[in-house]
């Protein structure tokens, strides 16, 4: 039985109510489901923030901020100080190699070292933080005999945060216009002078964004510190080794499972402090990024 071309054409052109409704339904259902997934994520974010801020606000007061931990009560001054000491120590160790690696990846792309370094840096981001912590325990706490200490904790944090600084530094140096470098070389500058005196000031705001992100990550980390920094209810005495140091995330993890109301209060207060700090830094970093790249775009 033959079918003429005209019949086929008529069939195709025949308006199909069913098909049209079906397509419209698919369109609405698709957007609806996508909006639903977005609302689920947004809802989870709101729920987390609500829990942290409401319970944290009920738990925090001046004495929490101004006294040290006593058993499962007291305050968090020792932990606040310890978090800052560990995070700053981590930054001091991670910023120079991170920026150096960023410069190398951006300025010396030819050759075998740059692709290899970039790959290893990207893989290092994915190494679980507890693995870094256990590495620190095996090598520094036990191997070098440092015991739980500020130095071991800071080095662990530095390893965690250095790939982030590397990446943002590389992007920052790539963002410096080529003509500036050419102008520098045209004036007879050495590569070192061009990079350090011309590119570095231009790239500095973006590099600082990366450093801020690294700071936020350091403040929020727990797993790499548990078996490197230990825990202490005393204020830091300035020793780099042989002396454990407290930090806020430990208080969250350890105190919430204690059967005491005072311990729970400390855990919620610590969660509020950590979350607030991390969120503020992220907002600042994001605003700096947008200022530089134009609103609506991404660095």
């Amino acid at each position: 039985m033959g079918v003429s071309a005209a019949e086929v054409r008529a069939k195709i052109n025949e308006p199909s109510v069913f098909r049209s409704v079906q397509r419209r339904l698919f369109n609405y259902a698709g957007w609806g489901l996508c909006a639903l997934t977005f609302l689920m994520l947004g809802g989870a974010m709101v729920w987390i923030l609500e829990m942290v801020f409401v319970r944290g606000a009920g738990a925090i007061n001046w004495s929490v901020l101004s006294t040290v931990t006593l058993g499962v009560g007291g305050g968090l001054l020792n932990a606040i100080e310890g978090t800052l000491v560990l995070a700053l120590g981590g930054l001091i160790l991670s910023v120079p190699p991170g920026i150096a690696a960023g410069i190398y990846l951006s300025e010396y792309e030819g050759g075998w070292l740059a692709p290899l370094l970039r790959f290893m840096s990207d893989v290092l981001v994915g190494v679980p933080s507890i693995v870094v912590g256990y590495f620190g325990y095996v090598t520094m706490v036990v191997g070098l005999g440092w015991q739980f200490s500020t130095a071991a904790g800071s080095i662990a944090l530095a390893i965690i945060s250095v790939p982030y600084i590397t990446r943002t530094s590389e992007v920052a140096f790539r963002g410096v216009p080529r003509t500036l470098r050419e102008a520098g070389f045209g004036l007879g500058c050495t590569p070192g002078t061009v990079i350090m005196r011309i590119c570095m000031p231009m790239a500095m705001p973006s590099i600082l964004t990366g450093v801020l992100l690294a700071l936020a990550i350091s403040v929020g980390e727990t797993a790499p510190l548990i078996y490197t920094a230990g825990w202490s209810t005393y204020m830091w005495t300035g020793h780099l080794t042989q002396e454990p140091i407290g930090y806020l995330t430990y208080a969250i993890w350890s105190f919430i499972t204690q059967p005491f109301a005072t311990a729970h209060q400390l855990a919620y207060a610590a969660a509020l402090l950590v979350t607030l700090f991390v969120l503020i830094i992220s907002v600042i970093a994001r605003i700096v990024t947008y200022r530089r790249s134009g609103w609506g775009q991404h660095a």
Binding site: A100, A101, Y104, L113, P163, T190, P191
Partner: peptide
Amino acid sequence: SFKRLIAPIASLVGGALLVIIAFL
């Protein structure tokens, strides 16, 4: 050269990964 100067510092980033695997 500047490249020679920063290469060892930059290599610390990749070195960290190797050192972790080696010592573990």
